[in-house]
Simulated assay, not measured.
Amino acid sequence: MIIDCHCHAGEGDGFSGPWDSDANLDKYVRRARKAGIGRTVLLAAFHSDYAIANRSVARIVAGDPERFYGFAFVHAARDRGRVHRVVGTAVEQYGFVGIKLHRIDARISREVCDAARAFRLPVLYDPVGDVAVAELLAQQYPDVNFILPHLGSFADDWSAQLALIDHLVRHPNIYTDTSGVRRFDLLQQAVARAGAHKVLFGSDGPWLHPGVELAKIHALELPEREQAMVLGQNLLRLIHARFSAGPSGGSAGRGQ
């Protein structure tokens, strides 16, 4: 099964751009089905209260649980003091399987990482090019898995993307996704140097076409086993870690 690990959904409450207004899934779902994408991880649009936004995503996931997974969006600064509660609600009531946050909101915090550790969840953190944070995350939270999407920075930020590849190679708990990366040679390099087990397929839907983003994975011409990792197995391994980890703690970096 092909799984898209990165798609936004629901309504934001700002109007600075599509990312904080309305992430309607109608076109996305039609396009994803046509492309053969069987499941999708949903993340809220940008919002002033992610507890509200996560509840909206939860309703979408509950409406088609065989197709959608949910990640809990948090704001590291604004949600300070309640991150564990927000994530706990998302996990225990909504069945969410990961955490999402964005550098545009605030830098990732120890409180977020502690919540991820407590609930054994992967963290999808967009550093917006500040990929050096991977070094701190990997060293201080080796039992938490972190996905830094867009190869570390959206579109053409090649220097940040190149730098992230070094972190992917060196740190077993640092991963990336392919959404919005325009320099195809860097995707090739990421897989060649870090391994297919460190790269996840993502589209950044509904604003980017999932079929177009998926075509990049096929263009990599990976061996069947490696392509299967990128297209879904890696994501399943990361979200299932919370169920398979023993009482001593996380399972970051296992199964490689």
Score class of each variant (00 low, 15 high):
residue 7 C to G: 00
residue 42 L to A: 03
residue 221 E to H: 09
residue 120 R to A: 14
residue 17 G to K: 05
residue 177 D to I: 04
residue 56 S to C: 09
residue 145 N to S: 15
residue 222 L to I: 09
residue 219 A to V: 06
residue 252 A to Q: 06
residue 156 D to H: 13
residue 209 H to E: 13
residue 158 W to E: 15
residue 46 F to C: 10
residue 83 V to Y: 08
residue 144 V to W: 04
residue 28 Y to S: 08
residue 113 C to A: 14
residue 253 G to T: 13
residue 134 A to T: 04
residue 183 R to S: 10
residue 7 C to P: 00
residue 47 H to K: 07
residue 140 Q to T: 10
residue 120 R to Q: 13
residue 199 V to F: 12
residue 141 Y to H: 06
residue 40 T to E: 05
residue 33 R to G: 06
residue 179 S to E: 08
residue 31 R to P: 01
residue 3 I to H: 00
residue 189 Q to N: 12
residue 33 R to D: 12
residue 57 V to A: 07
residue 57 V to C: 07
residue 168 L to I: 14
residue 173 N to E: 08
residue 190 A to L: 10
residue 13 D to C: 13
residue 50 Y to E: 08
residue 255 G to T: 08
residue 163 A to P: 01
residue 112 V to D: 03
residue 17 G to L: 10
residue 187 L to F: 07
residue 41 V to K: 00
residue 24 N to V: 13
residue 236 L to P: 00
residue 3 I to M: 05
residue 169 V to I: 15
residue 116 A to P: 02
residue 97 V to N: 01
residue 212 V to G: 04
residue 82 R to P: 02
residue 83 V to I: 15
residue 173 N to A: 07
residue 209 H to C: 13
residue 60 I to S: 09
residue 142 P to D: 08
residue 170 R to L: 14
residue 118 A to S: 05
residue 176 T to C: 12
residue 223 P to H: 04
residue 250 G to P: 01
residue 236 L to R: 11
residue 101 L to T: 11
residue 62 A to R: 13
residue 178 T to Y: 05
residue 164 L to H: 02
residue 224 E to Y: 03
residue 16 S to D: 15
residue 154 F to A: 12
residue 87 V to C: 06
residue 40 T to I: 07
residue 137 L to D: 03
residue 129 G to F: 05
residue 238 L to W: 08
residue 224 E to V: 15
residue 220 L to H: 01
residue 108 I to Y: 03
residue 54 N to F: 06
residue 174 I to E: 09
residue 61 V to Y: 06
residue 200 L to C: 13
residue 60 I to L: 14
residue 247 P to N: 04
residue 142 P to R: 06
